[in-house]
């Protein structure tokens, strides 16, 4: 990776961190288009739990990971909602970049540079 690309990646990550860490606190808390449609026809209480009626979400079940320390975009144990959302978002950005870039790096086409790769290096050479 060239230095120029590294700067671009760093700049992009900074923007993502600001969006997930700060701007996310100003996001709408209304249910999204899918969730709102899924709840149409049902009555819900203040927590959003379905209390009656007929709707797509009537049979909705709890998430298997609902006790995850990052569940619902917060950090368990941090009471300040801004800090909790912001930190969980920033952590999510770092984790997503790490997992994504790491996995893509592992399966990438080997060959030194993009220009060198114009030469036919066998891509299906076995690994992954």
């Amino acid at each position: 990776m060239t230095r120029r690309l590294a700067w671009f990646i760093a700049g992009g990550l900074l923007v993502a961190l600001l969006l997930a860490g700060v701007v996310s606190n100003f996001a709408s808390s209304s249910p999204d288009g899918l969730d709102a449609t899924a709840r149409k026809g049902c009555t819900t209480d203040a927590d959003g739990t379905i209390t009656g009626g007929t709707c797509m979400a009537r049979q909705e079940k709890d998430h298997q990971m609902k006790d995850s320390p990052l569940a619902d975009y917060g950090i368990k144990g941090i009471d300040n909602p801004y800090l909790s959302t912001g930190l969980s978002g920033a952590l999510g950005v770092v984790l997503t970049f790490g997992v994504g870039a790491g996995a893509f790096w592992l399966v990438r086409r080997r060959g030194r540079t993009a220009s060198a790769s114009a030469s036919p290096t066998a891509p299906g050479s076995g690994e992954n």
């Binding site: 993502a16 209304s30 709102a36 999510g92 870039a101 790096w105």
Partner: peptide
């Protein structure tokens, strides 16, 4: 290639960040 792999990681991280930013489209719907 060596260049697209880190860029794709950034794209994933950026999408994660922006997916947190729910915007209002209708009353009660984001």
């Amino acid at each position: 290639d060596d260049r697209l792999a880190p860029l794709a990681g950034l794209v994933a991280a950026f999408i994660f960040a922006v997916q947190m930013l729910n915007f209002q489209v209708l009353p009660g719907v984001s």
